[in-house]
Computed example of a mutant assay.
Amino acid sequence: MLRLIERLLPRPVHRIALRVAYRLRHRWRSVVKAPLEGVSVFVTDLEGKLLLVRHSYGPEGWLLPGGGARRGEDAIEAARREIAEETGCKLENPRLLASVEETISGAPHTAHLVAARTLDRPKPDGREVIEARFFPTHSLPEPQTPLTRARIAAWRGKLGGSAG
C-alpha cells in the first residue's frame, strides 16, 4: 500500500514528504530508543568504481546506497531490495562483509555492510535518490558524511576494499 501511495504522489511532493518523515523518525528514535537494522552496500562496476548516491532528504552529500532492513529480512535480501529500489541495479554475488553495532539518532543500530558488483547503470528513482554515480575509488566526490567516510575507510582497509 505504501509503495502505491508513493507512486501516486508527484515526485516533488514525495521528496518533501521524505524530508519531513526523516526528521520525525530521527526525533522518534531519539525518544523511543528502538533498535533497528540496516544495510550499507559497496557496489562496484566492472572497472572497480564505487557507487555513491545523493538523497533528497537527510544529510547533504554523497552516501553509500542502502537503507533499513525489514523485520525478518536478512542483510543480503535487504541489500538487493534497497539497491533495486534506489538505483534499479541488480547485484551480482552480494556478500556480507561485517555487521557493526552503532548508535544513530540516539538509538541502537546494527549496520550490515554488504559488497557486490553490478553490470547495470544506476537510474535514480528521482524520489528518494536524486543522483547515483560510479566514482574511481581514488577520486571520490565531496562532501561525504562522516559515517560514509568511516565505512569507506573500513572497506578499503580491514574489509578488503573489493566487491568481487
Rank of each mutant, 00 (worst) to 15 (best):
V41L: 02
F42N: 08
V43T: 05
V43G: 04
T44H: 13
G48A: 01
L51M: 07
L52A: 15
V53I: 15
H55P: 01
H55N: 10
Y57M: 08
P59E: 13
P59V: 09
E60G: 02
E60Q: 06
G61T: 09
G61I: 13
L64P: 04
L64M: 05
P65A: 02
P65H: 09
G66Y: 11
G66M: 12
G66L: 01
G67V: 08
G67Y: 14
R71Q: 11
G72L: 04
E73H: 01
D74H: 07
A75M: 04
A75Y: 01
I76L: 15
I76A: 13
E77Y: 04
E77M: 09
E77L: 06
R80L: 06
R80V: 01
R81D: 00
E82S: 14
E82T: 01
I83W: 11
A84F: 00
E85I: 00
C89R: 12
K90T: 15
K90F: 06
E92T: 14
N93V: 10
P94M: 05
R95Q: 13
L97I: 14
A98Q: 10
S99I: 08
V100Q: 07
I104A: 12
P108K: 00
T110Y: 01
T110M: 12
A111Q: 11
H112L: 05
H112G: 03
L113P: 12
L113N: 10
V114M: 08
A116M: 03
R117Y: 02
T118S: 15
D120E: 06
